[in-house]
Write a protein that binds this DNA or RNA. Sequence first.
DNA 1: CAGCATCCTTGGGGATACTG
DNA 2: CAGTATCCCCAAGGATGCTG
Lengths: 117, 117
Amino acid sequence: MPEDRTHKVSCSSFTYELEVAFEILSGKWVPLIIWHLADGEPKRFGEMRRLMPKVTQKMLTQQLRALEKHGLVSRKVYQEVPPAVEYSLTEMGLKLIPIFENVNGWAVEYLEKREES
Amino acid sequence: MPEDRTHKVSCSSFTYELEVAFEILSGKWVPLIIWHLADGEPKRFGEMRRLMPKVTQKMLTQQLRALEKHGLVSRKVYQEVPPAVEYSLTEMGLKLIPIFENVNGWAVEYLEKREES
DNA sequence: CAGCATCCTTGGGGATACTG
DNA sequence: CAGTATCCCCAAGGATGCTG
């Protein structure tokens, strides 16, 4: 979290905004989580775990909570026994998807060119 | 570096390509470095240091070398005394800039909405 | 000027066990 | 089921000093 906006001055061409974005997205499993929620379908915690077997339960919880705090993911708790929790992308979260697709497009081209050499 | 492409199987909807991209871009100072080279003008090492006073010399070298290895940045050494080295974005590096601008646009909207609440 | 070499610290993150 | 709570380790990265 860029604590002081005066940083803007010392790094004039790296906008405060861009810095914030990369800070939010730089969580180790954040891109993966967002990508798995990209279809707009809410998913339960256990479902997410199964989709991402390499992510420990601790990290999944931690990163989901961070995304919730930042307003990219919403967490809906159903008061039942046993408890059920659903995660989904918020409006702002969904708006990241086209960007992710652009990144993916870039990467496809990148890998093609790498293989040539 | 995703060492095995079989990972693609266990994380079916997170493409190998997207994973590669985020891996390259997730270096702590990578976005900042790319942003400072976005104008296409080659910049000398000392120049970069002045532009990014918060980045230590060790990290700047390290991250620039990683970007060079990945083919996003080119490093040109002029055999002089004293030595001069210029860094600039490669073709693939430059193609990231529009994406960065989209991210920036997203972040602007994101911060606006956050302030409302 | 543009680094490389070392030492040292910190916290990110894994493994494991427990709970409402 | 959906998490907390602890312990612990290692490597990312900062500080400092030296060099072709």
